[in-house]
Simulated assay, not measured.
Amino acid sequence: MEYLRHGIVIYDRDEEIVLINPYVSRMFGLADNAVIVGCTLTDYIDRIGNIVGWPQDRKAGILQNHREWAREGVRRQFDHQFDDGKVLEITYHPQADRGAVLTFVDVTHERNLKRVNERRDDLTRQTAAMLERVGRISANTRLVALNASIEAARLGDEGRGFAVVAAEVRDLSIETSDVLVEISRINHASLHIA
C-alpha cells in the first residue's frame, strides 16, 4: 500500500475505517497517522475538513452525503478543488454491506491540460475566423484591383501609372491569399498534432 500513487479509504457499515493508505493523508496535507484504521468516517471528515478549512455545517453535509449514498448504493465521482489549484478526483464506490471504498486520484495535471487544450481550441477557432475575414478582404482587394485595371485601360495612356498600381495591388492580394492558405494549413496541422 505504501507505494500506491492513489489514495484509498475503505470503511464498513458502522462507518469505521478498515483500510487507509498513507497517500490519502499526504494528498490532504495530514500527518500519516492523522487518520488510521479504527478511526470513524466522522473523524476522517473532521480532520480533512480542518485542514482544508471546511466549516462545521459543510463537514456535517459531507457526512450526510456519505450516508445517503450508502442508502442509495450508487457510485459517485466528483472533483475536489484546493485553493492552491490542486485537484483530486474522488470516487465513492458503495459496498453491498453499506460500507464504501473511496478512491482519490490527483488529477491536477490532467485538469490543467484540459483547460489549456480548451483555451487553445478557442484561440484556434478565433484564428480561423480571422483568417476567413482576411481572405474576404483579399478577395475584395483583387476585385478592386480588377476594377482599377479596367478603369486604367479605359483612360489609355493617361491611366498607365494607375494600371501599374492596380497590378501591384492585385499581386499583393494574391500573395496574401497564398499566405492565408499556408497559415490555415499550419493551424490545421497544429490542431491535428495536439
Rank of each mutant, 00 (worst) to 15 (best):
Y3P: 00
Y3S: 00
Y3T: 00
Y3V: 00
L4V: 00
R5P: 01
R5E: 02
R5H: 13
D12L: 03
D14V: 00
D14K: 10
E16Y: 04
V18G: 02
L19R: 15
I20W: 11
N21M: 03
N21D: 04
N21K: 05
S25W: 06
M27K: 08
M27P: 04
A31H: 08
D32L: 01
A34I: 09
G38S: 02
G38L: 06
C39P: 01
T40W: 03
L41H: 05
L41D: 07
D43E: 13
D43M: 09
D43T: 14
Y44Q: 11
Y44R: 06
Y44V: 04
D46V: 09
I48F: 11
I48M: 14
N50C: 03
I51A: 11
I51P: 00
V52W: 05
G53M: 04
W54P: 01
W54M: 15
P55M: 07
Q56R: 14
R58H: 10
K59M: 15
K59E: 12
I62G: 02
L63K: 05
L63R: 05
R67Q: 07
W69T: 00
A70N: 01
R71P: 01
R71C: 00
R75Y: 02
R75I: 11
R76K: 15
R76C: 10
Q77N: 11
F78A: 02
F78P: 06
F78E: 09
D79P: 03
Q81E: 10
D83S: 12
D84N: 11
G85N: 07
V87F: 10
V87P: 06
V87C: 10
L88P: 07
E89S: 12
T91V: 13
P94L: 02
P94Y: 03
D97T: 11
D97L: 04
R98Q: 02
G99E: 05
G99H: 08
A100G: 03
F104N: 04
V105E: 11
D106K: 09
V107F: 08
V107A: 06
N112G: 12
L113R: 14
R115S: 13
R115F: 06
V116E: 12
N117M: 06
N117L: 09
D121E: 13
D121M: 04
L123G: 07
T124C: 07
T124W: 05
R125A: 09
R125W: 06
A128T: 12
A129W: 05
A129L: 10
L131S: 05
E132T: 11
R133V: 05
R133Y: 14
V134Q: 10
V134Y: 13
I137N: 13
I137S: 14
A139N: 06
N140I: 04
V144N: 11
V144T: 09
V144I: 13
A145T: 03
N147D: 10
S149Q: 15
A153C: 07
A153Q: 14
L155Y: 09
L155F: 12
G156P: 07
G156A: 03
G156E: 06
E158R: 12
G159W: 15
G161V: 00
F162L: 14
V165I: 08
V165T: 05
V165G: 00
V165H: 08
A166C: 06
A167V: 12
E168Q: 15
D171Q: 14
I174N: 08
E175F: 10
D178C: 04
V179R: 15
S184W: 00
N187L: 13
A189C: 02
S190C: 02
H192P: 00
H192C: 00
I193H: 12
A194F: 03
